[in-house]
Design a binder for these strands. Structure first.
Lengths: 131, 131
DNA sequence: CATAATATTAGTAGTATGCTAAAATATATA
DNA sequence: TATATATTTTAGCATACTACTAATATTATG
């Protein structure tokens, strides 16, 4: 059941969740990720076959499983963001560096890091650590 | 001049440096990385074209540049290892999880993390943070 | 219905990873 | 030195991922 995803797949999951309240269609994803429609089509199909995304009448959304993956990535991201900024790394810098690794990090280890820094509710940007 | 490397390339760099005192040849690398000779050949050639490895009479070694990359990876690895274990993550577990990300981490951020934890000389395994 | 907007398919390409089989080179040993 | 063994390299093939253009199909909208 382990989900091995790529950086592009990660970006797709995050922007699908974050950048829209309205229904998201393929061309929106292509736009958000700055790729052409056929490339987005491939990417989305890969994520659908991994049961992370689903499509209904052209509207693409996260499955429950995908939503859990999103949460895990964000928790890892924000936990690391707190650790980085507390060490003096600029928060934007921290954010862009952590994007490279958040989707690869172990959930259990992140949980321990989070407890160790006092289980804060929010990251430096004011967003919830556990979305 | 930024070095973008892959996980396999990272593993090659690390095992080349660590697992041998004797001259390392292609078949040693294939053995260490558990891949066949032609695959190792490709990998090594890629790293040679990136000026990370060099070959003299069949003996493969890190260039000065490659050695710097090795050092950066190990510093990132051990810095994170300290942070993880101080949060209660088992050190072997920490090690295997950090292998997935150490080669992707930003040098400047790592430097700040390291200062923040008191610039220790050694990691939980007793190895120098700055090799 | 016709036009516009979206989605999909087909075809191509590059990088990274991996393999087997065969050929070429070295290195040892008899 | 000649043969045998070890090692390297080439060739050919395959898969996953990312990405494109051009063309076709589908779905909305006027």
């Amino acid at each position: 059941m382990e989900s091995v995803i790529t950086k592009k797949e990660r970006d797709c999951i995050i922007s699908l969740h974050d950048n829209f309240s309205l229904p998201v269609r393929l061309f929106n994803i292509a736009e958000m990720l700055n790729i052409k429609a056929p490339t987005a089509h491939e990417l989305v199909n890969r994520l659908i076959s991994k049961r992370i995304l689903q499509k209904n009448n052209g509207v693409i959304s996260l499955t429950n499983y995908g939503d859990r993956i999103y949460g895990d990535i964000m928790t890892a991201h924000r936990t690391m963001e707190i650790i980085f900024t507390e060490s003096g790394v600029n928060s934007d810098e921290a954010c862009s560096e952590i994007e490279k690794i958040d989707y690869l990090m172990d959930k259990k280890s992140i949980e321990k890091l989070l407890v160790n820094i006092g289980s804060p509710e929010k990251c430096p940007h004011g967003k919830p650590v556990k979305p």
